[in-house]
């Protein structure tokens, strides 16, 4: 199991970029934290999600 935004997901073995695409995230509006570290944008398609990972996908909305 991978914990993403507080929920258990069946995403172990998936590439981060595939997970984000499948779940409709707009890549230019997000920041991704994995196990306490920022994931550089250039690494999204090289980051393999592993069992026990904890992720937070921050999806920014307009207004300020």
């Amino acid at each position: 199991m991978v914990k993403i935004n507080g929920e258990d997901c069946n995403a172990a073995g998936m590439l981060l970029s595939d997970y984000l695409k499948e779940n409709g995230y707009k890549l230019v509006r997000i920041a991704v934290e994995r196990n306490g570290e920022i994931v550089p944008k250039a690494m999204y398609d090289q980051t393999l999600l592993a069992d026990g990972d904890a992720l937070e996908v921050v999806s920014f909305v307009g207004g300020g």
């Binding site: 230019v28 509006r29 920041a31 944008k41 920014f60 307009g62 207004g63 300020g64």
Partner: peptide, 18 residues
Amino acid sequence: EAFDVPEQKAMITNYVLE
């Protein structure tokens, strides 16, 4: 980070943290 546009918010956040 006190921007209005979400793409700008994401840009500065990713850049500074990285």
